[in-house]
Design a protein around this nucleic acid. Structure first.
Lengths: 158, 158
DNA sequence: CTTGGTGCAAACATTTTGCAGCACA
DNA sequence: TGTGCTGCAAAATGTTTGCACCAAG
């Protein structure tokens, strides 16, 4: 991770990044579909994003990238983050006050569901399979097709 | 600094809060409990908020107030909005890109649940009674007490 | 008086955009 | 050659804060 370019580049050789593979493909496909390119910077950012533990701040991400020696500008990071949203790889999350800039990886997980502790803000990804059916039901009732969902459960100890 | 700091200590039970008790009373009680005052401006803002159809933007609210002849500053509006969040009367909502500044009245409704059309951004409040039990189950599994939840269902026609 | 509230404007944090140069199809 | 990409810095949002003054207990 400290080297120069051990990225998912995809042009030729890869490293031992396994989680990233499918996401990478999705991202690339989406980009290509829009006439955009899968550049080194975008690969680096995707890589960094997938390495994030659940939730992350755009700011942290940027700092992390710089710390690892990558020279990406925040403009590019934000631009890429937006592209990733469009590709359905990540989504913005806001669960309480003052939580701007918070993102979450949603690709390859059913991780739109969060359990959030109101006492310390800690967020855990939860699994709630039954929810899917509920959402589908609601959509059907409105004559719509389910595209996704997001649940935030707030709780405290005691 | 993640958790919210409730003025009276954990308002929370939004879902079962009876519709009967006027929001005004709750707000007032909460304020008093924190040694704060229920001023004219706060009343005006609360009033305007309750008049909002579901979701609203802080910005719209401010414009609306000014248009009605009230001379409240945005600073006061934001300060009051925050107080209302702490009282559990409203909550911030972010369901997609670019939706900062969006709020929702949650008092007296089980309205943390939204059906959002991905094609035009239109948001409808939905009723999903079964969800409550699911949330409770999850909380129990983690040894926590349910404080509230928020669901966003994304869907499109076709 | 003392505590809190308000408006205003400046400050902030986050995200976006204009621009010039660069890279690759 | 053109189209897209990048970094930088400036701009644009959305929200908060410092300050001086006002209002009520």
């Amino acid at each position: 991770m400290a080297g120069s370019k051990s990225l998912t580049g995809g042009v030729s050789n890869l490293d031992e990044m396994s989680v990233i593979e499918p996401v990478c493909a999705v991202f690339r496909r989406t980009l290509k579909g829009a006439g955009l390119k899968y550049t080194l910077e975008r690969a680096q950012i995707l890589d960094a994003v997938m390495r994030q533990p659940g939730l992350f701040h755009a700011d942290e991400l940027i700092r992390g990238l710089k710390q690892e020696g990558f020279r990406v500008s925040k403009a590019t990071v934000y631009r890429t983050l937006k592209l990733m949203q469009d590709s359905g790889i990540i989504q913005r999350v806001l669960f309480d006050d003052d939580d701007a800039g918070r993102y979450q990886v949603v690709f390859g997980t059913s991780a739109s569901d969060l359990l959030i502790r109101t006492d310390n803000g800690e967020a855990t990804q939860i699994e709630l399979p039954e929810l899917r059916a509920l959402c589908e039901k609601i959509c059907a009732r409105h004559g719509l097709t389910l595209k996704g969902h997001r649940l935030q459960v707030f709780a405290a100890p005691e």
